[in-house]
């Protein structure tokens, strides 16, 4: 049967310390005469003992301590220890397993071990830096000055390192490695996707006169942000992918509803803006122009809703479309 392993567990189930004991009974307590010594102020010097019962199961018995032993939230005098039974003694959680305790089969490794560290980190920083420089260039209408571009680059890289570092820290805390390079890569790809959406959304809205794309553009932005968070979380614990998918979908829905509620509260409309303010070069226009008469008909059509909202209380006079 033996040897037996006493495993002290963290609250998330990770093994903090594992001790091999060759023979039964196993004495557990704070005193130095025990087989397993607990550094726990809430454990008695001689707290409990593990013995086989007549049926051959392992049983943990309380040796008359004040705080006792707790299994699944209930205080017990003694407890049968199956391989997965977690017992709390004072502030210490532990379980006892025999050497023949079955373990889960190994997981198939999908991780690209070549795509870790420097390589993805550099790629992520490169993407972030290029987006920052592009944004700076697009909005630069003053005479060229290298300092402004250096500032933009430094700002972009600092943001990437800060964001990636935060996730790396979380990864080290909840996983084993920081995986900073991977997190930087996720950030770089995310920023590229965001910038791409802003450019593409503006282009489509302008080209086809599809104003609702920019009116409600912030919702796709929340979806992309939720996607970034999903990839960061999956990097930390690849096994929980499905759960993270739901969490991130929920977050995206929540953020979108907050944006809608905020817009209604602030401006009385669901849309993010009063009108589409995007202007692009004429070559990017696909839709045709309308006559002034047609435009004035649209203006005329607003009179009815406006007059109806006159009578309502300030605060709930949303213009109905």
């Amino acid at each position: 049967m033996g040897p037996w392993f006493v495993e002290l567990l963290a609250r998330n189930g990770d093994v903090l310390q594992r001790q091999c004991v060759d023979k039964l009974p196993i004495r557990i307590g704070r005193g130095y005469g025990n087989d397993v010594i607990l550094d726990d102020d809430y454990a008695a010097p001689s707290h409990a003992i593990v013995e086989p019962d007549p049926a051959g199961h392992l049983v943990l018995r309380d040796l008359g301590s004040r705080n006792g032993i707790v299994v699944a939230g209930k205080r017990r005098q003694d407890a049968v220890l199956a391989g997965d039974t977690v017992v709390r003694i004072g502030h210490t959680s532990l379980r006892v397993r025999a050497a023949d305790c079955p373990v889960a089969p190994e997981l198939v490794d999908h991780t690209l071990h070549g795509w870790e560290g420097m390589l993805p980190g550099a790629a992520g920083l490169l993407l972030t830096g290029s987006i920052a420089l592009l944004a700076r260039w697009l909005s630069d209408a003053e005479f060229f000055e290298p300092a402004r571009y250096a500032e933009a680059l430094a700002g972009g890289l600092a943001a990437a390192l800060l964001w990636g570092g935060m996730w790396g820290f979380a990864n080290r805390l909840f996983g084993r490695h920081a995986r900073l390079g991977r997190h930087l890569f996720v950030f770089g790809c995310g920023i590229t996707a965001l910038a791409g959406w802003i450019a593409l959304g503006s282009l489509l809205a302008y080209a086809f006169s599809a104003e609702s794309i920019t009116h409600y553009g912030s919702h796709l932005v929340t979806v992309l942000l939720a996607g970034i968070v999903y990839f960061h979380l999956s990097t930390i614990r690849p096994r929980n992918r499905v759960r993270y998918r739901w969490i991130c979908a929920g977050l995206a829905v929540l953020s979108s509803s907050l944006i809608l509620a905020g817009n209604v509260q602030r401006t009385g409309r669901f849309s993010d803006e009063l009108y589409m303010s995007v202007l692009l070069p004429p070559a990017m226009r696909m839709s045709s122009d309308h006559g002034v008469d047609e435009f004035m008909r649209d203006v005329d059509a607003m009179k009815g809703p406006l007059d109806r909202s006159r009578g309502r209380k300030p605060g709930d006079d949303q213009i109905d479309d």
Binding site: S209, E211, T267, G268, R269, L274, Y275, M276, L279, P282, R285, S287, S288, D289, H290, G291, V292, E294, F295, D298, V299, A301, M302, K303, P305, L306, S309, R310, D317, Q318, I319
Partner: peptide, 24 residues
Amino acid sequence: TRPACAEMFVHTATLPVRAVTCVR
């Protein structure tokens, strides 16, 4: 009241413009 807006690509006699009219 809150503004109601109409927006359109419009062509005047000699110039194409993006026009927005908001009314309160």
